Simulated assay, not measured.
Amino acid sequence: MPSPITVGVIANPASGRDIRRLTSHASVFPTSEKANMVVRLLAGLGVVGVERVLTLRDRTGVAALLLRAIDTHTALAGPQRWPQVEFLEQPIADSVADTHAGVAAMVRAEVGLIAVLGGDGTHRAVAAHCAQVPLLTLSTGTNNAFPEMREATVAGLAGALVASGAVPAEVALRRNKRLVVRCVAGPNRGREEIALVDVCVSRQRFVGARAVSEPADIETLFLTFAAPDGIGLSSIGGAWAPVERSAPHGLHLCFGRNGEPGVPLVAPIAPGRVEQVTLRTCERFEAGVWTPLNTGHGTLAFDGERELELERDDRYEISLDWDGPLTVDVERTLRYCASHQLMREAAYRAGAVMQTAAGAGA
């Protein structure tokens, strides 16, 4: 008997609720809306044949609200089919360790894809462990450059088409760039980190509240892409020299302090915050070239969040490659679906299932 078509779902309960809500005018993603997004995702997944969903428990209420919605849907016994939802049995650490362990378990379970509800940091955490399993990206964070703002129902339809194999991978999926930082000398020698959008050498000496939100703190910035309509640190590159996700290169930018020589530039580095920076240099950052980082002081931030406090003897280097995660191109997937009338086939299958169920209940 063939294995059921299975999809993993990672819904970060902490995304969209960080300290930047106190320093900017960013919107808040409440627990109820995250649960509602998962419900809408289930509706899209179920129509096109996904039979099983693996997800995580949490202490904030996302899982509890999802269970309530599932119970209500089952009691109503409506015609719309949802996948069977299973919660992975693992300890709850209330940290990124939950995501790391959950994604690793989903990979072992051979899910067809992993739907991710979160911001850049959540997607970075998933990408570190997802191997070749493609990601369906949904934005629920603060500075979201990597995931898309998209209706979860529509994303679920596209995700199901990919997980079921109805749309070929070469049509539906795209490979992403990533930045790799490794420590080659010093106390942290051997440590390696990745970023999907940006790596920042910050002048701030301590991790603190993590978010890079003050323009004066930005010393050096490396970007995988820079959209002209983006937000966050990558918007600085987008305001000066936009780079597409599909471009073979990234950007390397250096900044001066206020009053130092350079080009003044304004960019939306956070929701509601358009700040000025002093751009000293901007260069193409080619793939496959390891470049030393000037890390004699300060902190290293990955995808907008400070994570490493630099030791005096540490020596880091950075490179751009094409080993980032595969992601579902929702629009391209649904265009293929329309041109091949795959939704008509889905309707025929759904009708057959309903007739079978009606016959069994007679």
Rank of each mutant, 00 (worst) to 15 (best):
R332D: 06
R108I: 04
R17H: 12
I318C: 04
D323M: 03
P271F: 08
R124A: 03
E309H: 08
V47R: 10
L56R: 00
R205I: 12
W290R: 11
R150D: 07
W240K: 01
M106K: 00
A241Q: 06
R349I: 06
T278F: 05
L334V: 11
H100N: 01
T295C: 14
E89S: 11
T122H: 13
L320G: 03
G296N: 10
G304E: 09
G250W: 04
T281K: 09
T23V: 14
G141M: 12
T224A: 02
L67H: 00
V53K: 01
F302W: 01
H249G: 13
L196D: 01
A97T: 12
Y316W: 15
R315E: 15
R178K: 15
V277G: 09
G44S: 04
A338H: 08
G141K: 05
E51W: 02
E148G: 10
R68W: 00
G208L: 10
R191M: 08
E110R: 12
G237Y: 03
H73D: 13
C130I: 03
G208C: 13
C282N: 10
P168H: 12
M1I: 12
V107P: 01
R245E: 13
A125F: 12
H129V: 13
G44W: 03
A338P: 06
I10M: 06
L76W: 02
L179R: 06
I236G: 01
T137M: 13
I70K: 02
D98M: 02
S213K: 11
L221N: 01
A358K: 09
W240M: 11
I92R: 02
F302R: 04
V184P: 02
T60A: 06
R273P: 00
G141L: 07
G238P: 05
D323A: 07
A105D: 11
N188Q: 12
Q84E: 14
A155N: 03
F146P: 06
G288N: 08
N258G: 12
V201I: 15
A185L: 08
P215G: 07
L135H: 04
T142E: 06
G119L: 05
E244W: 01
G49D: 10
L253T: 06
D18L: 10
I92P: 00
T31E: 08
G8N: 10
R280T: 12
T299L: 05
V111W: 01
N36A: 14
G250M: 13
N188C: 14
G259S: 08
E307R: 13
T60S: 04
I231G: 10
D94R: 06
L117K: 09
F302D: 01
N143H: 09
G61F: 07
R245M: 10
C130N: 03
H25A: 15
E33A: 09
P215D: 03
V47D: 09
V53P: 00
R17C: 14
R174Y: 10
T23D: 13
S234F: 03
V197D: 07
S95M: 02
T122N: 11
G159Q: 11
P30T: 15
V107E: 06
A128H: 08
A35T: 06
E331T: 15
A239K: 04
G61S: 01
S235Y: 01
G102Y: 00
G118E: 07
P292A: 15
I70P: 01
T278I: 05
V28W: 09
V243P: 05
